[in-house]
Amino acid sequence: MAKQPRVLTGKVAAITGGARGIGKETARQFAAEGMRVAIGDLDLDLAKATAEELGPNVVAFPLNVTDRGSFKAFLDGAEEAVGPIDVLVNNAGIMQLGRFLDEDDATTQRQIDINVNGVLWGMKEVLPRFLARDTGHLVNVASTAGKGGFPGGATYCGTKHFVVGVSEAVRAELRETPIEVSCVMPVVVKTELASGLQPTRGVKHIEPGDVAAEIVRALKFPKFDVFVPREVQAITTAMNVLPRRGREAIGRALKADKVLDQRDDATRRAYELRASHSEPGLEPGAQAKQLTESTPDA
């Protein structure tokens, strides 16, 4: 007998970074499934506009994922507004690119604070709620960059390796409980975060809705490894049985080593500037290599 999908109608989800991109499309598809959704974002005005666009089952809250108190307030507010949370999607993240030795300390710290601590605070705040109710599904959005290292994005790759690793460890710790954990690992997604990136051979850039659809599927048919697109899992599995030289040679043949390193910085400028102001209280930086409002386009 085929496995029956879990019913999502009436479930409550909280999504970080929900005002745009993958978070917004996930909220859209959750609402279409009959779920009630709370989106949290640093840009509250945009989050409110997104919630209004997506309909009455979506509500918006302010959220700074680098601040555990802000995360708690988000979850508390969400539960008061739409009910006990059944699903948390740790989606918020930034990707600031450049060679490792060219990266200023503020950029390094910002990516760690948002991509690593932002996931940790969400897990620490939501898992006790799940355990108290003996139900819940944690979804951590990582990246295929969490399965390999790519020049031009060393810190970003490191943060996504962390998300994969902590997700695996916590899943093992929760094995004897009904709590589900999923780790989502998409290729390059057509969002502002990926602006100016070149395609690889054989793996095309995907839409935010593609990632959202796989998250929905992982809720209906729980699984840990959620590769997007799905065929990337077979590629990753095959690569892992090869010696390092073989893996690296295939990566170069697919131009995977060029994706983050040979980007169009002029196209990325608006995103990089926004990302450099994405953590309140952390100055963008004053070093010569730090992106500022006056950075030339050329």
Rank of each mutant, 00 (worst) to 15 (best):
D43H: 10
F30L: 12
E52L: 11
T26M: 07
M35T: 06
D43Q: 11
P56D: 15
I22V: 14
M35R: 07
D43S: 07
G34Q: 04
L44S: 04
G34R: 06
F30S: 06
A51T: 03
R36V: 10
T26S: 15
T26Q: 08
K48F: 06
G23N: 01
G21S: 11
L42G: 09
F61T: 06
T50E: 02
A49G: 04
A47K: 01
G55R: 04
L44E: 13
E53S: 14
R20A: 10
D45L: 12
A51P: 03
A32E: 15
I39Q: 01
A51I: 00
V37G: 02
T26W: 06
D45Q: 13
K24V: 04
F61L: 08
G55N: 05
T26D: 07
E52M: 08
A60M: 08
G55T: 02
E33C: 13
A47E: 03
A47C: 06
D41Q: 01
K24Y: 06
V58E: 02
F30V: 07
V37W: 02
R28G: 07
I22F: 09
E33R: 15
E33A: 13
R28K: 15
D41W: 02
G55K: 02
D45E: 14
F61I: 05
P56A: 15
L42M: 13
E25V: 08
V59Q: 14
